[in-house]
Design a protein around this nucleic acid. Structure first.
Lengths: 147, 147
DNA sequence: GACGAGGTTTACGTTAACGTAAAGTGCTTG
DNA sequence: CAAGCACTTTACGTTAACGTAAACCTCGTC
């Protein structure tokens, strides 16, 4: 029963060259610490398009990367709609219409500007945090001094 | 009618030393490009606590800074609850209980870690964007070449 | 062949962060 | 003093991003 490596799922899964590996929804969910529901929802929103094997969803490397990018976008506060916009244009690239491509470049510039503002926000917030931290330590030191 | 600088609101407002300046809700809203509703909502959520003059809210420099920090937090994807947590502990600092202070330091460390992950996310997403940008430009060039 | 572990669809519920509308207060300006 | 603005409270509506529950397959295993 262990001679048919047709689609070995679990045991020697990490022996495959990764590009050919497939994932179930549960596996992906575990990897990224989200629920299957979340993954299905992202599909419904047009962010993922796994193939099917009968009724079950089959995720490939491409889908895994998509999910990773989506979650990264979310951590940065982007909405699913924004993320989808970029992802879909990216997919439409190969047979790219010139107008579409220019639009994509605009979009990318927007995102870049967004990221830069975020970097500045991070820088400032770090300064604030360091300041508060310092003051808290000072107060604490004063409290512990008169022993 | 222009001799009483008691609480001059508009005309020579920028002549005041800023620390004494006060703002109406509408002014603040305009400055930060949010609606008054948003500002009231933040108050309701415990993020702002303007004084009153009769029924009207009076915002001082402190409130303006609070709002600025709040909006910065939002841009970074923090929830109002998270922001409030830090803000409230900050306010409780002066009469600080040692346990509270240590808790604050923990919280700050958390936030810092969060910011660092975000920076990494930004770095990676920039790489992605630059890559997509480059490929889009390449395709575009090929489309325009055979004139 | 019952069953438990995973998968599936469908559908209603929930939370955060406001938007929007109604109805009232207070000043100042023609 | 009527009109208009900017403010107020109260309350219901809305959207995004899932959570949760029910009811159903399908497969390997005891």
């Amino acid at each position: 029963m262990t001679q048919k490596p047709d689609q070995a799922p679990a045991a020697d899964a990490d022996a495959l060259p990764r590009q050919q590996r497939t994932y179930t929804i549960g596996e992906l969910a575990q990897i990224f610490e989200v629920t299957p529901r979340t993954i299905r929802f992202y599909e419904q929103e047009g962010l993922l398009a796994p193939s099917r094997q009968g009724q079950k969803r089959i995720y490939r490397e491409k889908d895994r990367v998509r999910l990773k990018l989506t979650l990264r976008g979310k951590r940065l506060g982007f909405s699913l709609a924004e993320i989808r916009e970029v992802v879909m244009m990216y997919d439409a690239m190969p047979d790219g219409n010139a107008r579409q491509l220019r639009r994509l470049l605009e979009l990318l510039a927007e995102k870049r500007a967004n990221l830069e503002r975020q970097q500045e926000d991070i820088r400032l917030m770090r300064l604030e945090i360091d300041d508060v931290d310092q003051r808290a330590r000072d107060v604490l030191r004063q409290l512990e001094k008169p022993l």
